[in-house]
Structures are given as C-alpha cells and as structure tokens.
Amino acid sequence: MSKEGKFEPKIIVFACNWCSYAGIDLAGTSRKKYPHNPRIIRVMCSSRVSPEMVFKALRDGADGVLITGCHPGDCHYVTGNYQTMKRFQLMKKMLDELGFGDRVALEWISASEADRFIEVINEFIEKIRKLGPIKFREEVLENP
C-alpha cells in the first residue's frame, strides 16, 4: 500500500539473462519510464523458474508474478523457453484451480523490446490493481 492508502501491487518479475533482462535494461538506457512496481530477479533462463518459486512469491507477499523469457525460437539455450512454456501451462491449471491464475503471466521479451516490456508491465500492473491484494494471505496465513 502506498502512503495514501492506495493499493500498489507488488510485482515480482523473473527475467532471463539474455533477452528479457537485457530488454528491461534497454528501457533504462533509453530513459523510458514505467511504474516503479516491478522487482526483478535475474535467472540465466526462464526455464530455471520452478513452480515452487512462483508459489513462494505469492505466499510471501507478491500480488503478481511475471515470468519473462526469449521469444520462441530465440532461446539462448535452444529449447529452454519451450520447457518454460510447457511447465507454465501445467502450473497455470493448478493456479486457476486455486484462484490465482490471473496473477501469474508468461511473456516473451527480447533484448531489443524495451517498449514491449513497458507495455506488458503496464497492462499487468493494471490487471493486478483491479484484482486487488491477495486476501487469503491475511485470512489464512497471517491469522490461522
């Protein structure tokens, strides 16, 4: 929450070293602006992000989790992002069952797509803002 009491979503972004992290860097070097909500965790490949990490982020206080990687066919590790894609679909099913499906997204952002990152992150923040904070944390985890 911001000082004014307005809900400011806490967003965790997993970014692969070769494409997405570099694309997010490019937004900075090009002096573009975007909201301050995203907090970035660098991994070498999007395929390193396990479902456990996503669940942990939601449980620990993130309102949304965005996984980013190289476009299909452009993965630095040949097929890494296809593994991410497969795993994401399974994880999404589980998250949908639990009611968190909308809070987790997978997007492809290349090293040159600073604008695309900004577009994606703006949309994602707005989506999470509309969903509001995760109530279950207060209701279940913090007051068992």
């Binding site: 806490k10 965790i12 907090r39 965790i41 991994v43 070498m44 390193r48 396990s50 456990e52 990490m53 942990k56 982020a57 939601l58 449980r59 620990d60 206080g61 993130a62």
Partner: peptide
C-alpha cells in the same frame, strides 16, 4: 544450478515479497 540455487533464488523472492 550453481550460482542460481533454489536457496539463493527463494531468498531473493522472500527479500522482495516479504
């Protein structure tokens, strides 16, 4: 994965989310 272990990444997540 060395330098990107579960322990390390989960610690980063907790540091940011919690």
């Amino acid at each position: 994965q060395r330098h990107f272990t579960d322990k390390q990444i989960l610690a980063e997540i907790t540091a940011l989310a919690k």
